[in-house]
């Protein structure tokens, strides 16, 4: 990862880029602010109940599929006496929680949804403008023949050896670059929104299909988390690529244009 090709010396690179479109630049930075706000507030929300389940239900009195070590809120031993709901042993129980938990959801939840509104509104504007202007078709949509496994593997290896064409200050993008941007914009971010909505009781009442599609409220929450983890990996990789191809050059290109 040490040797980085200097863009001007890279003979493979296209001579120039027209730079990022103005509305792409504006949307990009709004999305950065929105994603950061959602990530921070989302982590605070997750800390309140740091356990992941599958299906409709999951709580302190039930087993989980994963306990995240990000807060000390899950202390089943500190619950009071369990009482059976049914006469048969091993059935559902109730118990009182006798300890105070870490909970900043008063602001974290409302901030999360406020940032979600901002991101959804920006996303709608971005996708609409992207489809009308041809930005999606021209710059993001990989060509069918480009998607040959061999071509993708070559681009992947080139990235690992840092021999890929150096990014310009805008489109045209490389193959993997296009593919990843496309997946983030049209798969991962919409999945975040839909799994988020699947956790809202006022939304699943008229649209119970959301619960069927994801397998329940807790499943939607778990998918929401893993999709966030994937997006976080993307952001890290994205920033690494920006740093490797000239941090200030790239930031200037995404802010001022060329």
């Amino acid at each position: 990862m040490a040797e980085v090709a200097v863009p001007s010396n890279d003979i493979d690179a296209p001579a120039d880029s027209d730079g990022h479109l103005r509305w792409v630049r504006v949307c990009h930075w709004i999305v950065v602010a929105g994603f950061f706000t959602l990530a921070v507030s989302g982590i605070f929300i997750l800390m309140v109940y740091p356990r992941l389940h599958w299906g409709e239900v999951g709580n302190d009195l039930m087993p989980s599929i994963l306990d995240l070590p990000i807060s000390g809120n899950h202390r089943p031993d500190e619950y009071g006496t369990t009482t059976q709901f049914s006469a048969t042993a091993g059935g559902p129980v109730s118990a009182n929680r006798n300890y105070e938990i870490f909970n900043q959801n008063g602001w974290a939840r409302s901030l999360h949804f406020l940032a979600a509104w901002l991101l959804v509104a920006t996303g709608v504007i971005y996708v609409t403008a992207g489809l009308i202007s041809g930005h999606v078709r021209r710059d993001l949509l990989p060509r069918i023949k480009e998607l040959a496994p061999g071509a993708m593997w070559r681009d992947f290896k080139a990235h690992l050896r840092t021999q890929s064409k150096a990014a310009l200050g805008g489109p045209p993008y490389g193959l993997l670059q296009k593919l990843i941007y496309f997946i983030v914009i049209f798969v991962a971010l919409p999945l975040m929104v839909i799994t988020g909505l699947s956790m809202a009781p006022a939304i699943t009442a008229p649209f119970p299909i959301l619960l069927d599609v994801f397998g329940g409220y807790q499943s939607a929450r778990t998918i929401h988390f893993f999709c966030f983890a994937a997006l976080l990996l993307f952001v890290i990789a994205h920033v690494v690529m920006v740093v490797m191809t000239g941090f200030w050059k790239q930031v200037r290109a995404m802010t001022l244009g060329k």
Binding site: E56, V57, L61, M62, Y79, S94, N96, A205
Partner: peptide, 18 residues
């Protein structure tokens, strides 16, 4: 809101004021 079957009844923590 969706209504469930009797067999779906789960354990329920009692939190806040008990």
């Amino acid at each position: 809101a969706r209504e469930y079957d009797y067999s779906d009844i789960s354990s329920v923590p009692a939190i806040g004021t008990t």
